[in-house]
Design a protein around this nucleic acid. Structure first.
Length: 574
DNA sequence: GCCGTTTTCGGCCCGACTGTTTTCAGTCG
């Protein structure tokens, strides 16, 4: 996969141009770098498939950048980039990660002190050389040293579901201050991105000073980047950066909108505002000096002639056009799930008994869950064979009866998370599968098969007449391992032709399917299931993150089979 | 350097904070 290396070079070209004060081009390169990095297809494959024309179809890629990408793919280098690099031969992508250092300062550091990389920078700072440079000073030097230390220690993004308890705690504490009228977490947290880089907290208060004092002196604060009347920024112990903005009540909606992003969504809104003769900023929507909207987000969208856009959709993937045409979907709600179709019990690697899972699910507001323990191929989990499954089915019948007699309103379904073997055959015979309510299948081995073989393997499994759901379809684990190579278009086509459901596994580090695949399923009419993949009673809480991912994929309640009543859901299954 | 059912040329989001400046450039989001 060449996308990341191509993106990195494009981003560096942008920074080099920034160094030279070239107007506008830096933004073009910066933007296209982000696009290329996020491409799902390997850009080398795109090029093989359609040549330079296909490259030009990537948003943000025009003639000039397409040529440069082609040059890189053909020769492994880009002359233009190398010339820029020759002039200022520094490790740009690392140095720009140092908080407070941008292209201009890096240029100066190179020209005056020959600083090329992080080590040079650290040495110079420690030797007190940086403070002597014009427009630098003692504070800058100290900040650089701090920045280097943080960069070496942390770096990387945080998984939303794992960072959320910390975020909620800060939110709650700020909310309890008497000077705080309202507190909301905006940014990528509110958009429910699967990973977050930092946290943007918005507060309404007429007395910001004590709020800022409290915020910057919380016990977990390890650095204060900035502290002012309207904005402060800190880093906390676990490495997370948190920004706090204080806004007046009449600007709350505009500020919430602005700080929720995404950046591209905001830019588009501002353009629409300008076209209509308004000005939109974080303080409100203005005509001349008069504020015409901004108290609430709804008001802002409405005044611009748009329907309200849910935060999860604000990624500039067509939501603004849809909002203008009143064609946004009514997303599945956070309380809409009635069931959970993947849970593991103590029969294999789950921590709790079937009955404990049932009770916990009931508490989580569910009406039915499928018990889907592993199968024998996963020996280390004590995976069940046909005999074990039959035994478990009998046990589930017994527990269902017991629950019913006690008027406990939850139904247990008999299921399996059956292993897909290397050749696409299944780990359990058809006869046994045919007796289950819910047959889920998944890949737990041979992650490194060539794309074609992996795709063929999974397609074969999906074509089994008993298979209902493909669990965690791409096998990725965030911050740990990438998805295996698989042709998702073919998987989705197979789901269409076989009526197989694709899962959104809600474990915070899986979230598999991811949003863009959910969206493709929704477009193709493929149904999805949002499952906790619970291995303990506490894991039902993760369903929330699966719902977020589905919402980010534009899914409605109709698209999600476990948002349906039990009878209707069962009819959907094979 | 990209983009466009207002444009194939002329636009390109904009405000806060910091540090080192005596009025602003650089960085960030």
């Amino acid at each position: 996969m060449k996308n990341h290396e191509v993106a990195k070079i494009l981003a560096e070209i942008g920074e080099y141009l920034d160094m030279q004060n070239v107007p506008f081009k830096p933004r073009a390169y910066e933007k296209v770098a982000g696009v290329v990095d996020g491409l799902e297809e390997d850009i080398a494959v795109t090029y093989e498939r359609g040549g330079i024309k296909a490259l030009g179809e990537i948003p943000g890629v025009g003639v000039s950048i397409a040529e440069k990408i082609e040059e890189y793919l053909e020769t492994g280098r880009i002359k233009y980039y190398e010339e820029l690099k020759k002039k200022t031969p520094v490790d740009l992508s690392t140095l720009t990660q140092v908080e407070g250092l941008g292209p201009k300062k890096i240029k100066k550091l190179y020209e005056e002190l020959r600083i090329k990389n992080l080590d040079d920078l650290e040495k110079a700072a420690k030797a007190g050389k940086i403070r002597k440079l014009e427009s630098f000073g003692v504070t800058s030097e100290e900040n650089i040293l701090k920045g280097i230390e943080f960069l070496r220690k942390s770096g990387g993004r945080f998984i939303l579901g794992f960072a959320m308890p910390t975020v909620k705690e800060i939110e709650d504490r700020l909310g309890r201050l008497k000077e705080v009228k309202r507190v909301v977490v905006a940014g990528s947290v509110r958009r429910r991105k699967e990973t977050i880089g930092d946290v943007d907290v918005l507060v309404v208060s007429s007395k910001p000073a004590p709020v800022m004092d409290y915020f910057t002196s919380m016990p977990e604060v390890i650095n204060v980047y900035a502290k002012g009347d309207t904005k402060s920024a800190i880093k906390i112990k676990n490495g997370l950066d948190v920004d706090l903005r204080v806004v007046p009540v009449e600007s709350f909606g505009a500020a919430l909108n602005y700080f929720t992003g995404s950046k591209d969504h905001n830019v588009a809104l501002r353009r629409i505002a300008m076209d209509k003769g308004y000005k939109l900023n974080e303080y409100g929507l203005f005509r001349g000096k008069k504020q015409v909207a901004g108290k609430s987000e709804e008001e802002v969208y409405e005044t611009l002639g748009l329907d309200y856009v849910e935060p999860e959709l604000r990624e500039m993937t067509g939501e603004i056009i849809a909002a203008g045409k009143h064609k946004l979907p009514k997303l599945i709600g956070y309380n809409d799930l009635k069931g959970d179709l993947q849970t593991q019990s103590s029969w294999t690697d789950g921590a709790n008994s079937i009955e404990e899972l049932a009770q916990a699910a009931l508490k989580a507001g569910l009406e039915y869950i499928a018990i889907t323990d592993h199968t024998k191929r996963l020996a280390m989990t004590g995976g069940l064979d046909e005999k074990g499954l039959l035994k478990q089915m009998a046990e589930i019948d017994k527990i269902n009866k017991k629950l019913k007699s006690r008027k406990v309103k939850i139904t247990l379904l008999k299921g399996t998370e059956c292993d897909i073997l290397k050749d696409g055959s299944l780990d359990i015979d058809d006869k046994t599968l045919s007796q289950l309510d819910v047959v889920g299948v998944s890949v737990h081995s041979y992650f490194n098969l060539p794309k074609e073989e992996q795709t063929k393997r999974i397609v074969r499994a999906m074509k089994n007449p008993h298979v209902d759901i493909l669990f965690h379809p791409t096998g990725r684990v965030l911050n740990k391992r990438p998805a295996y190579e698989v042709d998702m278009d073919e998987i989705i086509e197979t789901a269409v032709s076989t009526g197989t459901v694709l899962e959104v596994d809600a474990l915070p580090d899986r979230l598999d399917l991811k949003d863009e695949y959910v969206r493709r399923c929704v477009e193709k009419g493929v149904k999805i299931a949002i499952d906790s993949d619970a291995h303990s009673v506490t894991h039902f809480a993760y369903l929330e993150y699966g719902i977020s991912q589905a919402r980010r994929g534009w899914a409605t309640r109709e698209d999600v089979i476990n948002a349906w009543p039990l009878e209707k859901m069962l009819k959907m299954l094979k």
